[in-house]
Computed example of a mutant assay.
Amino acid sequence: MSALLTVRGISRSYGGVAAVQSVDLEVDEGTIRAVIGPNGAGKTTLLDLVTGFTRPDEGSVEFCGHQLTGMSPRELPSLGLMRTFQSARLVPTLTVRQNVMLGAYRFTRARFFSDALRLPRTRREECELVVRADELVDFLDLRHFADTPAQDLPAGAQRLVEVARGLAAAPKLLLLDEPAAGLDDSETRELADVLDAVRAGGVSLVLIEHNMSLVLAISDRITVMDAGRVIAEGLPNEVREDAAVRKAYLGVAS
């Protein structure tokens, strides 16, 4: 396997407090990598550093041969890198279909004047976006919400719409920040099936998640963080039995 994402020695401090400390991470093509740890471990800060929402104090990030350090987040979708957030960042007044369509706009070529005049290219591209969005809405079993404004969705459905919007950009790597938040047990099992299908379709995943049943069910490798550092890394069974992990994250002494 070849590494899609390589993080080397990345660090970030705030007011003398180290949020992320010298973290190394590699994500191989065709895999699901989970990053777990207690609240405040630095997991979301790590995603922010990878995707340019936060600048590192030191270290580097490489994705598919491109140095990401210093790049703007809006440049990353064109490279094949997308992410979701802990809190769903949907446009509340747009429908589910329209929110998913937003993820695919990097494929459009029409610009302001053609949009304003509704020229043939604009109409054709809009039809293509609708088709792509509807395919993803069906894929995530959201068809009954397709015409529902995002603000009227239950929290769990909003999480799935964010996943669909990320997939609409046809990423090589999708970074998911707590996608199971707000989902019940049945919905979480369905999400596991969806993420397995996403991986089977050629999209690699990085998963930040507190739901250990989901993490253990779908992850190829797991990275464990605590107090900004990586304290363990390995296969799911190895990580589950690691004494440092059981103490720091699972709440047991040995």
Rank of each mutant, 00 (worst) to 15 (best):
E135K: 07
L160E: 05
V161P: 04
N99G: 05
A41Q: 09
Y105C: 11
A116R: 04
F139S: 02
L129D: 12
V163S: 08
V130W: 00
V27D: 10
V35T: 06
E162R: 01
D134G: 00
L79W: 03
A133W: 03
R55T: 14
A150K: 02
V130T: 12
R159H: 07
D134V: 00
S78D: 13
S78V: 03
T54V: 14
G52I: 12
A88L: 04
V96W: 03
F85G: 09
Q67P: 02
E162P: 04
E62W: 11
L117Q: 06
A104I: 03
M101Q: 15
Q67Y: 00
A157G: 02
F53C: 04
F85W: 10
F53A: 12
A41S: 15
T31D: 07
L90D: 13
V137Y: 02
G166V: 03
E162T: 09
M101F: 05
R143D: 11
S87C: 03
F145G: 02
L49Y: 04
T69N: 12
R165S: 09
A110D: 13
A88C: 05
L81M: 14
D28I: 00
A88I: 01
D147Y: 00
R143T: 15
V130S: 08
L160W: 02
L81S: 11
L167S: 08
L68T: 10
G37N: 12
Q98K: 13
A116L: 15
E75K: 13
L160A: 04
T69D: 13
G52Q: 12
T45E: 10
A133E: 09
V91H: 05
C127Q: 14
Q98H: 10
V35L: 14
T93A: 14
R83L: 04
R165G: 08
G166L: 04
N99L: 02
G166N: 07
R109Y: 02
A88S: 15
F63H: 09
Q86S: 12
S60L: 06
H66G: 02
P77C: 10
L153A: 09
V27T: 07
G156C: 07
E26Y: 00
T54R: 09
Q151K: 11
L46N: 10
L153C: 08
D28P: 01
P154C: 11
L142E: 04
L68E: 12
I36P: 06
V163N: 06
L68F: 10
T93M: 12
E75I: 02
M101T: 04
F139M: 06
V50D: 11
E162D: 14
D141Q: 13
K43D: 13
L102F: 02
E62F: 07
D138T: 11
L25S: 05
P92A: 11
Q86H: 09
L94A: 08
T69V: 14
H66Y: 13
T122S: 12
V91A: 14
L76E: 06
R83N: 05
F139G: 02
P56T: 05
A34I: 10
A41M: 09
L142M: 10
R83E: 05
A41L: 09
F139I: 01
L81D: 11
P77W: 06
F107Q: 11
R118S: 15
A157D: 08
V131Q: 15
R123D: 07
R74Y: 13
G65D: 12
T93L: 13
R97I: 13
L79K: 05
R121E: 15
